[in-house]
Simulated assay, not measured.
Amino acid sequence: MKKNNLILGMLLTAAAASAQAQPSADAERLDAVAERGRHVMPFHLEKTLHVFNKTPHGGIQQVIAKDAGDAEQIALIRRHLLDIGQGFKQGDFSRQRRIHGDDMPGVAELAAGYAKLHFDYRELPNGAEIEYSAEESSLIDAIHRYFNAQLSDHARHAVGGKPEQCRHKMHRHGAMRPSLPKE
C-alpha cells in the first residue's frame, strides 16, 4: 500500500513538473472532454489516473485508481477497459469519438486497420491496462498520435510514460513523463 502511494505521488509530481512536455488542450476543451467522458467512462476521473506509455510497437494505456484500496473504482476501471478493448478488436472506437470528436488524431487509422492491430487487456492490482501493438509503422504512428491526443485532452487526469526508441521514422517523440512500474 505504501509502495503504491509512493509511486502514485511520484507520478503526480512528475505530471505537474512536466506539463509542458505534451501540450494540453485549452481549459474549455479540457472541461468539455471531461464532461463528455463522464457519460462514457463509468469511473470517477478525479479518483483515477490515465497513463499512456508509447512503446516501439505501439503503447500501453493504463487506468489506475489513485487509492489502491478503492475496490469500486478498480472494478469500474477493469470493466470499462475490458469493454473498450473488446470493441477495439472489432474496429469500434465510437466511445473515443464521443469523448474526443470524430477528428481525434489516429482514431480513423486505428479503426480502419483494426484487423492488423493487437489489443491485449490485463488487470493491474489497482486498475487495468490495454497494450496496443502493430507491425506496420503507419499503425504504430497512429497509436502514438492517439496517445498524444489522449494526453492533451485528459491533461488534468493523465500522464505519459517513459520515451521508447521507436523502430519507425514517422515522427519524433517529445519529452515524456515516467510511467507506473509493473509489479
Rank of each mutant, 00 (worst) to 15 (best):
M104T: 13
D67K: 14
M41N: 07
R122Q: 14
H154S: 01
G106Q: 02
E109N: 14
D92P: 05
N126W: 05
R167Y: 06
K116I: 03
A115Q: 13
A16N: 10
P23N: 08
L110V: 02
S94V: 09
E129H: 05
A134P: 02
N4E: 10
R177A: 07
I143A: 03
E123A: 11
Q20D: 11
R156S: 13
L6E: 08
Y132T: 03
R97E: 08
E46D: 14
R36M: 12
S133A: 07
I130W: 04
A68F: 07
R122K: 15
A142K: 00
A14D: 07
S94F: 12
L76I: 10
G127Q: 01
M170W: 08
R79A: 15
F119G: 00
S94I: 07
L8G: 06
D70V: 08
H44Y: 00
K182P: 02
M104Y: 03
D67A: 09
I64R: 02
R38D: 15
H168K: 04
A32T: 12
L180S: 09
H44V: 00
S179F: 04
G58W: 00
E35P: 02
K169S: 15
L151T: 01
G101F: 10
I77E: 00
R98E: 12
P178A: 04
L30C: 13
V159E: 01
L110N: 03
T55C: 10
Q96D: 15
P42I: 12
G160V: 04
Q150T: 04
Q90E: 07
A149Y: 01
R167N: 08
V40L: 10
G69C: 09
